[in-house]
Amino acid sequence: MSIFVDRDTRLVVQGITGRDGSFHTSQMMEYGTQVVAGVTPGKGGQRFNRTVPVFDTVADAVAETGANTSVIYVPARFASDAIYEAADAGIELIVCISEGVPVLDMTRVIPFLREKGTRLIGPNCPGAISPGRSKVGIIPGTICREGNVGVVSRSGTLTYEIIHQLSGNGYGQSTCIGIGGDPIIGTNFIECLAAFEADPDTNAIVLIGEIGGTDEQQAAQYVADHVTKPVVGFIAGQTAPPGRRMGHAGAIISGSSGTAAEKMAALEAAGICVMKRPADVVSLLKERL
């Protein structure tokens, strides 16, 4: 078991013929993901790498291949349209990798997805990987190992760093998910925590947050109320100055709220072990397991 992506994931890649889309499609196929279709308008009828059929629309791809999950690599200005298209075609899980999607676009996307009952991960995220089963997105497969730690994070490369520490010390992962660094995202910490709590193959959870917003505080409250599995946390941005956007659109301290100190205190108050540095993830997990 794992969460969100697994062996039954049948993936359609939106933007399969683009630079990023084609590179990562090859990587996902190499990893063993079932890539059943691609979409690039105007290139319907072609085949990607002589194997994966390309369609003009997501609806065609779903009708012909039974795709249930989509991953989006299109440029940011087309990303919200790609999300609407996938949801409209009946896709159950959409993973949007594209970075730079205007936040007002997302305010319109979210209620549409709620009505459709579609799950979105991202935008501006590295996607999800269930080691040994399936990967949807860009998390390097080589750093992951099969195992029982669930990882959920707002960041990309920082997640890789922590996965690298886990794998190198004998802690494999059930699923690793990057939920994205934007202010408005489809799937939040709490939804991932709930899924990990329910997943019989996950026996501990690593939560990686950063400055900005109050998602981590809400996640902490959720852990205190509903999560029985051990949780280890990290918050990036202790040295970040207020009022400046630290790369991610969502990573900004406004006034006195959204600071790392505030978030670390909230995690600790909820019984979550907080790492001082990424390398501590191993010793803290060892203590709790």
Partner: peptide, 12 residues
């Protein structure tokens, strides 16, 4: 490379 890792590096 990466905003999260950049912040974590500053913190370290």
């Amino acid at each position: 490379n990466g905003a999260g890792l950049a912040m974590a590096t500053m913190d370290l």
